[in-house]
Every structure is written in structure tokens, then in C-alpha cells.
Design a protein around this nucleic acid. Sequence first.
DNA 1: CTTTCAAATGTGCACGCACACATTTAATTT
DNA 2: AAATTAAATGTGTGCGTGCACATTTGAAAG
Lengths: 355, 355
Amino acid sequence: MDIGKNIRIKDIAKLAGVSVGTVDRVLHNRGRVSEEALKKVTEVMNQIDYKPNLIARTLGSNKNYRIAALIPDPTLDPYWAQSNLGIIQAQTEWAQYGVVVDTFPFDLYNKDSFHRLAREVVEQSPDGIVIAPIFYHESVPAFELFQKKEIPYVLFNTNIHEAKPLGFIGQNLNQSGRVGAQLMILGQHGPGIFAVLHIDEDVQDSVHLLEKEKGFRDYFEEKSKSRFEIIDYNLNPHSPSFRDQMKQLLDNEALKGIFVSTSKGTAVAASFLEAHGKNDIRLIGYDILHENLKFLRSGTIDFLINQNPKRQALLGISHLVNHLMFKKAAPQMDLFPLEIITQQNVDSYLGSGIH
Amino acid sequence: MDIGKNIRIKDIAKLAGVSVGTVDRVLHNRGRVSEEALKKVTEVMNQIDYKPNLIARTLGSNKNYRIAALIPDPTLDPYWAQSNLGIIQAQTEWAQYGVVVDTFPFDLYNKDSFHRLAREVVEQSPDGIVIAPIFYHESVPAFELFQKKEIPYVLFNTNIHEAKPLGFIGQNLNQSGRVGAQLMILGQHGPGIFAVLHIDEDVQDSVHLLEKEKGFRDYFEEKSKSRFEIIDYNLNPHSPSFRDQMKQLLDNEALKGIFVSTSKGTAVAASFLEAHGKNDIRLIGYDILHENLKFLRSGTIDFLINQNPKRQALLGISHLVNHLMFKKAAPQMDLFPLEIITQQNVDSYLGSGIH
DNA sequence: CTTTCAAATGTGCACGCACACATTTAATTT
DNA sequence: AAATTAAATGTGTGCGTGCACATTTGAAAG
């Protein structure tokens, strides 16, 4: 191991017996290289561990990369506001390397706006795309457009199996449900009922929420905790019957805990619990949103599972830049840790730089 | 605001009517500049907003930085082995920019070796130091040496208030104990006993362990959970009476849970619980060490609080490099999130890139 | 055998800065 | 007035890479 001096393109050229220009062409495979030369260079490359000097690279090539971020409008939803913070951070972080990020915020209650913006993105033909494909049916044709124009794209938050992205960034939702279940059952003595609440505008289209529920149920089955019953509700917070449904649920004396699959829904459920003075029901939900924070501090919410939307977006762009600028392969799946947030450790999360 | 072009030294020189050399001398105030020229340049500087191109700066000045890492011998302890992984990662990450990290591994059971190596570090007069100051009394004079020689240093793992470091990286230990307490009490019904175990060679000198215990006790007091009793034990795992003490503790029928303040101690306590078939006692400890993993998976350990030693060391060096190379201020306190690890989310932590 | 031409390969400059060195200026001594 | 000297200022090169352009090579066509 020779410390100190790093291998430069010049060194590779000398070792392979060619000029730096040829090495450069091989490195960026822009062709115009003979079979023989290519073989010699790749041979050297395999033997040594060449790491391009990124500093020099960005100095030399004054290239500018344009990245499009297709995410739900951050002004309409606190969860996506956090994602947007990640986009902004990535932007300032990479600005010095000549990377520009354009955000295309679509209305998360309006599939048409998604469809429209997706086409707008393609028209701009950016160098890369990060996308939160929350609409399953509308996303698939969008991906086809990206692929046709050969624009690399990174998925985050929601995975879609039809897609052929550079990579996906998010969490294992099934496992996420299991974490919820484990925290739910801790110290609880049966018999009793646990409720899984999907509080969302249209649940039927949200496969990812059901995956969390499945994990939750799977845990109970595997641990054979059959003395507990699990019931699930699909609730629309804006429907007129919502309040009654919640009231009915809370009036059930056997109810021991509630697991909410959405971040916004968590705060909604918490406010109902507080209003009804139900302090002994364990509440587990998602994400360190401002609204949830209040209830976590008051003790109404016991646990939050942090999906880290900010970091998801941040890494999405980082992976894209690494691919474009440094030709580094992005991990096909970047599964985030399932962070457990409580009243006592939430400040340590808020204070740390990652957040 | 003109985005595109950034102001270069060359531009300043032209505006001030001098050469780039003179501007350079003013910028780095290395003297040899006439009053007149200095005035002209500073005048221009005040009117425009010059931001030096850090990329070009590091390329131009081919400086090599030597960083010393003063940490406990990684071969003697699995916790510090993780720290060492962070050092190694930082080393490979920064090697190409001319940063060399020298590790000075001291015996964590031998204060003299710490003292000796600290002086050896100073003799080498590196450009920066990262240090895990686990010995309070021996550290303070070491810091004075660093300061006298004007070597910037970064603390991690253990904070020492007498120090004037560039920054500290670690966790809020009091809060860490509170997290343990909260997890301990969840779903537990009094009355009962909780034990705080300090399993270490010499506890009396380990202020940081006591800080965790204080947080643990503070939580009970603040939440007025007086129906629970808290007892603490200072145990030396190599003392002959150790087994008896543990057995006596476990035989106490009122014992509801154990909180262990050290990572290695966690596995030790877990093995005793398993040996005695005590499945119903909640066990909370520290860190994702290989030994702990087994007991977490089997369910003997209920929670681990992750101190992320690897990342602590990694960031320590990063902060130092940012200070030396890019003149960027390191955060005075980089407090890590108090990560809660369970059987169900441990794999998501192991799989994620940070680990 | 020369000419043509494309493919292959090599060379040189720019990026913005730091730093060493060369040159100019001005004050002082001889 | 010439020589000496130090201070002030200017010039040039290198850092490692990307890219445009120049040059060489070799084969096919004339």
C-alpha cells in the first residue's frame, strides 16, 4: 500500500503505454480507441484502484447538470415539506459542483397535475430525475417516457416494480409494520384489540399503506399472539362520517392500541385521543411532523417511526449526481433504517445535522 | 445577483489595478504589500462579495495534512473496534486529497499508556487530532499540550468541559439514560425494581456511565413513578464475586428490568438472563455489537441504544479536514440521535449504508 | 508510388488558486 | 552618480482532469 501519492490518469497512461488522451477516452468510453489500446488500459485499470480526483474533475470540466425533482407540492403537506427541505439541501450542497435542481411540485390530490408535470419534466430533458411516484397508475407511463428519452431516474418514498430506475430509496414497509407491532405489544397483556388506521384521501390506491398493515399483522401471527385481535379502518378525514367512526372506535373498552399508517393521520388520531381523554391507549404512527411533535411531547403519541423524508430526497439527488458526475453506480435499493422516535429521543433527532 | 460567473482573484486584481500576486498577499495577509495597494484591494473587497473557489484552492495548494487519532486499542474491545472502522473509512475517503491519519491506540485499561501516547502525538505535531478522552484526569493536561502547540483537536464519545476543542461529537448521555428509562417503564405495572448495571473494569472513574444513570433516575423522578425502586450496581466482570452478585440480583422476584450502561456489559448481562431462564425481565443496553446481536434476535435484549461509534469517529475526522482544508467551521457540538434498536429494526440499521 | 481519408492517438490549454521566483521600484550607501 | 539593498509588485508554473484540436498511422484508392 503506497500511501501519499494517488494514481493519476497520467500514471495509468504510462503503465498502459498509451497517452492520457487514450486513457481519457477509455474512461469515458467515447470510442475512437483501438481494440488493443482498450485492452491494455482496462487491464491496468483492473489491477490498480483508480479513483479520479473529483476536485480536479469539477474544476476542469465546467459542466452543469440539471436535475428535475418531481414531488408533491410541499406547501400542501407537511410530510412533503420535509422532502422539499432535502431537495433544497442537496441543491446548496451540490451547487458548487455545477448542479442545478429544478423542482416540479404537483398537487398530491390531483393525478392530472402529476401527469402534466411529468410531461413537462420530459420536455425540459434534464440530465436526471428524482421522483416520488405516489400515483401508481400515472407513474408507469411516465417511467416509459423517461426511458425512451434515456433520462436516468431515481425513485424515492414509494417503490414501483414496473419501473427500471437507477435505484430506489425508502424503507421496507412490511418490516416497518412489524416494528410498529413489536412496539405495540411490549408490556401489553391480552386479551385486547389493536386498531390499524389508514387515514388518507383515497386509501384504495395506496398499496404502500396496506403493506405496513400486512407487516403489522404478520408479526402477530409469527409470534402467535392470538390473544389479541386486530381490526383495520380505512378512513377519509374529510368524510362526514369520520368523527362518528372515530368515536365508536374509541368507545370500545377493549381497545389497547392504535397503529396509524400515515404521518398526517397520526396527528389526527392523537387529537381524538386527547379530546376523549384516552390516555391509556398506545398510539404509534409515522414521522416527526410539527403536528405530531406536540402529541409526542404530551405523551399521547407513544412512538413514531421516522421515514426521514428529508434524507430520502437528499440521497435521491446525491445518487443521481454520483451517477452523472462520478459514474458511480447507485445502490439499487437504499433501505433506510426504521428509526424509532419517542418523547425522550426526539430532540436528539431534531438537533442532529441529518434532520 | 449575477449567478453564472463567480468573481475570481483575477477580477479583483483588475478592479483594484494591481496584479493577482498582490491580491493573493492581501487575501492571506502575508505582508509585503504597500499601504496604497492594500487600501485599493480592501476597498474592492468591501464592495464585492468574493467567495474563493474551494475546489481550486485545494487543487492548487498541494498541501498534505496529517491527522492523529488517539483512541482505545480496537483489538481489545469490540466497541472501539467499531470506532476504528470509522477511522479507517475516513482514511480511505480522504486519502486522495492528501490526508493521512495516524492511529495511536492506547490500552483502555491503562492510563499510563494514554498519557504516553498523548505526548507522542504532540511530538509528531500533526495538523489535527481526534481523541476519545475516556480518562478524565489524564486528558486535561493533554489538551493543554495541544493548545500550547496550537493543534486543533476534536473530541468524540466523551465530552470534557475543561477542553477547548474545535468540536465535540457524541450523545447527550443524560438524555440517553432517560430514553432507557422510558423504554423500561413502558407497559410495566408497579411496584417493582429496576437495576442499573455498570459492568466495567473501573467504574469510579467513568463519569459518563454515571451520567447515564442520572438520566435514568431523573426520568423516574420527573414522571413521579415512585412505585418503582431503582438500585445500581458497579460490577467488575473479572472479579471473583461477579457471578454471585449477578445471581443474587436475578433471584430477586421483584426485579422487572435491567439497564446496562456499557455495550460489553449488555452482552454479559444478557448471557446471565438466558442462563437463568429469566425471559420476563426487560433488558436494555447499548450498541449493535456482534455479541449483543445474538441476544437481541433471541429476545433476551429488548432494546439497544445505538451510540454509533463508527460514525462518531468518521465525522470527527471529517470535521477536522473541513476545518483544515476548507476553513469551514466545525459544529461546536454534534450530538447524535439516540437511536433505538429492536429485534425488528436492527436489520434495517445493519443494511443501511451508514453502518 | 503518391494521394486520400478516416480511425487512432497524442498534445496542449483551461479551470482558479497558491506559491515560488523574477522583475521593478525606491530608498540608502559608497 | 553608480552601486547596493530591501521592499513591493508582477509573472509563471503546477495541481489533475476534460476536452478541443493537432498529429500520426495504416489501409484503400488513384
